[in-house]
């Protein structure tokens, strides 16, 4: 009897259990990657703003619109008035621009879908990174080629730390780059 029970366990129960555990873990892990760090998230925006056109073809500098990135913690999505700087005249009959003008004239809130979001307990500071010479593309991917912006990097703590620790390799274009801080209070106040 005993031999048969042990046999049953080893040949039947154990592999099945291991298989179930492994399979569910692996599938969940990969299937949920998108939720866990959001890589690849490329939502539709209320206005089809194309970075490829503005930042890529027309070569408008990132900081023309994202004004606060050099001064403060936030990069700041530009005010609608910044768009209207050009678009009161430029292509003002295009349907997207008409939508945009409506937002501006009626004071309607323009709710962009947020793509890059770090949890509330992490206080990320853009200006420190920008002032050290890090380019926008290092973290945000090739924005200048994106029709629709998507999240290209995972912004988990692991990925932030990996760049902080290997800054020499990850940021070769900065001379004399130092390792980024690794202590808790850097981000988690």
């Amino acid at each position: 009897m005993k031999a048969s029970l042990l046999d049953y366990i080893l040949r039947n129960r154990l592999p099945v259990t291991i298989f179930v555990a492994a399979a569910s873990f692996i599938i969940t892990f990969f299937a949920s990657r998108a939720e866990r760090d959001g890589v690849g998230y490329t939502p539709d925006q209320p206005i089809n703003y194309s970075h490829r056109l503005h930042a890529g073809e027309m070569q408008i500098d990132c900081q023309y619109c994202h004004v606060a990135v050099e001064k403060s913690r936030y990069a700041m999505v530009p005010a609608v008035a910044t768009c209207m700087n050009c678009h009161t005249i430029a292509k003002k009959d295009s349907p997207e621009i008409i939508k945009l003008t409506e937002y501006y004239n009626n004071g309607k809130t323009l709710k962009w879908k947020r793509i890059h979001k770090v949890p509330d307990y992490a206080y990320f500071n853009h200006s420190v990174h920008v002032n050290k010479g890090i380019e926008c593309e290092s973290c945000h991917g090739e924005i200048k080629q994106m029709e629709k912006v998507g999240q290209m990097n995972s912004f988990t703590m692991r990925s932030c730390l990996s760049c902080h620790r290997n800054s020499h390799e990850r940021l070769p274009y900065i001379d004399d780059v130092q390792r980024g801080p690794e202590y808790c209070y850097t981000c988690h106040r």
């Binding site: 998108a34 700041m76 999505v77 530009p78 005010a79 008035a81 937002y103 501006y104 879908k113 890059h116």
Partner: peptide
């Protein structure tokens, strides 16, 4: 939409004095 991270809303007309975060 499990990936939804909410919205980010800019000013319509940003007052000149304000730098968000400062």
């Amino acid at each position: 939409d499990y990936q939804d991270k909410g919205e980010i809303v800019p000013y319509n007309n940003k007052p000149e004095e304000i730098t968000i975060g400062k």
